[in-house]
Design a binder for these strands. Structure first.
Lengths: 219, 219
DNA sequence: CTCGTAAGATACAGACTGTATCCTAGGAGC
DNA sequence: GCTCCTAGGATACAGTCTGTATCTTACGAG
């Protein structure tokens, strides 16, 4: 079942949810449970994508979701938790297929950065980072934040570096944790500094000038 | 002349500036011109350092500076401009000497990252990035923001990479703009993600695992 | 049907924003 | 010394938002 939520005029006191899988379902005026939570998180995410972390307000989210602020505060004590939950929700929703293995380290990395370069993934990174910057002041590490917001899938994800090691292209002795995350670190750095998607040139600079030479060096 | 500003109780309508270079200077009740602007920017910077970009308010800055919000608004239309000006001010004030050249690429890079790791420089980076993220949405590039906030000194600053090229340790063909800024990009990335100073280990990882191997490779 | 719960509406006090207006402290000029 | 001008500082205003509390009643379970 997908939701078609009519955006109510401000001040309207009913929200009409029209279930799209059954034209005969009774019309509901109040949402509950999972339906409500999905609508809330969608509203948060849309608002976050529209205005960013700083300008996002409970008031605006409530308005967008057609609910009252109390409903939001009952679930999430503050903006951090709100955005974190929305990011988690968005991630779960957009679990599109990752790129297929190409057999080439360079192509694998490029494909993955292109995939990450889609708008929703960039928003996800921004959300993670904003939340992380806050929690870092409380002694929470970035790795912990990332785990909190993006639970590691139990399915083994494909790693371009592991594949290249298996093909004998990369010496595992070179692969430190920092080098393993370097491509994505540089990608994130770009995301945080620019509102626009990375150019193809930026992607190939990251891969061809930095990551691949480091990974494939012989000494 | 340095300023000793007594923090007035809220509601107090005079601010006493005691010039420390002359005990006989007349007591002034209102600040003007450069004295005032310095006091304002100092207050902004302290507030920014204390509470960060998000929680910084004109109200709190005005209170801390012992002035009215109108005085701030007369100079800076919004938070971005306010913080940008304060960062510029802080940079000008803390122009401490950069590390001396060591004769070794690695040591030069490490020394510079250690220098950058001081609290005030990290605050500067944070301020630049926050402002930049905002202006990026308006099409301003990060490079432009950085130029705006940290005017390039006309004095030629020492570059570890240039020195290493001169010593024959680095092939200039390898030195792309992205590689030239890599050490500092990775440093900034760490600063943005963590509230604590970088550990010595993180610094040496950046330099020894990534930057130096890339710069000094032969192929 | 009844009952329990939480959705949604609304009120409250406080903080902050952006703007406008007023009084008068400072400094320049004579 | 004086006068004049300007902007510092105080304050008011209307609006938005926050965090919290309270009330009514729509839903869903039994």
């Amino acid at each position: 079942m997908s939701l078609n939520v009519d955006d109510p005029a401000p001040g309207t006191d009913t929200v009409v949810i029209v279930p799209s899988t059954s034209a005969d379902a009774p019309t509901r005026q109040r949402r509950r449970g999972e339906d409500l939570e999905s609508a809330l998180l969608l509203a948060v995410w849309e608002e976050f994508t529209d205005v960013g972390f700083y300008d996002l307000t409970f008031e605006a989210v409530a308005r967008r979701a057609g609910t009252s602020r109390a409903v939001l505060y009952r679930r999430w004590p503050g903006k951090i938790e709100l955005v974190a939950a929305a990011a988690r929700y968005a991630l779960a929703k957009q679990r599109g297929p990752e790129p297929e293995p190409t057999g080439s380290l360079r192509e694998d990395l490029v494909a993955r950065l292109r995939w990450a370069n889609r708008t929703d993934v960039r928003s996800m990174i921004a959300a993670t980072t904003h939340v992380g910057a806050y929690l870092a002041a409380e002694g929470v590490t970035f790795a912990e934040v990332r785990t909190m917001m993006m639970p590691t899938s139990s399915s083994a994800t494909f790693s371009p570096i592991d594949a290249a090691i298996a093909r004998g292209e990369v010496d595992p002795a070179h692969v430190t944790p920092r080098l393993a995350s370097l491509a994505f670190d540089l990608f994130r750095h770009e995301v945080l500094l620019n509102a626009q998607p990375l150019t193809e040139r930026a992607i190939s600079e990251i891969v061809d000038e930095i990551v691949v030479p480091l990974l494939t060096r012989k000494e």
